[in-house]
């Protein structure tokens, strides 16, 4: 090649073509999606929990997507009753689909594990509930106090994991994060059958 113009025009053409195909076109197509009636917009509290999910990097170990049963075991392993569809994510900004399943998928964790106290203890120390877990503990989402003040919610921590003295008090942050986790349930039917994805090649 001898011409800069060929280089720059060619290079721009390819990347802009891809941008149109993979970003601009889908954006206009997807803008017509309707939120399924059963999918409630997130509350303030759930959004606060969601931003803690982002800032503490849960996404690097957990996905939020259920794939087609024809080539995965997602549904037979109880991650959901149907594959996830674009409508399920309509309120998500940014998306939290994830790329690693170091821990289980959380798309329907609210349906699978509805118990608040389980989640609180699990966040404080996963190994108190699941001995083989390699999930990090998040003690900084709790307060460690000599004794509880009125109105404090005290977390019951089993012996080997409890601090030597004082009590563990649940913070607003931990409550918000658990609210968010419990809100993760997509057990309503998929909005329309056309959106049920066919099998990939």
């Amino acid at each position: 090649m001898t011409r800069l113009l060929v280089l720059i025009m060619g290079a721009m053409a390819t990347v802009i073509f891809a941008l149109v195909v993979l970003v601009i076109l889908p954006k206009s197509m997807l803008s017509q999606l309707q939120a399924p009636p059963q999918l409630k917009p997130p509350s303030e509290q759930e959004l606060a929990g969601r931003s803690l999910y982002i800032s503490n990097g849960c996404i690097y170990c957990h996905t939020q997507q259920v794939r087609d049963p024809s080539f995965t075991a997602d549904i037979s392993k109880g991650l959901g009753s149907r594959p996830s569809v674009p409508e399920d994510y309509i309120h998500d900004k940014p998306h939290l689909l994830g790329t690693m399943r170091t821990g289980p998928d959380l798309f329907n964790v609210g349906a699978r594990l509805p118990d608040r106290n389980w989640h609180l203890l699990h966040l404080y120390q996963p190994r108190a509930l699941v001995p083989w877990s390699i999930m990090p503990a998040f003690p900084f989402l709790f307060r460690h106090k000599p004794k509880a003040d009125p109105g404090d919610k005290v977390l019951e921590v089993p012996k080997p994991f409890a601090p030597g003295n004082g009590v563990v008090v649940v913070s607003e942050e931990a409550e918000a994060l658990v609210d968010y986790l419990i809100s993760l349930r997509h057990d309503y039917p998929a909005p329309s059958n056309e959106d049920q994805k066919e099998v990939q090649p």
């Binding site: 891809a18 941008l19 993979l22 970003v23 889908p26 954006k27 997807l30 999606l33 674009p86 994510y89 309509i90 309120h91 998500d92 900004k93 940014p94 998306h95 689909l97």
Partner: peptide
């Protein structure tokens, strides 16, 4: 928003 955000993320 939503899955577009995933598309542009991986683009």
């Amino acid at each position: 928003q939503g899955v577009e955000s995933a598309a542009v993320n991986w683009f």
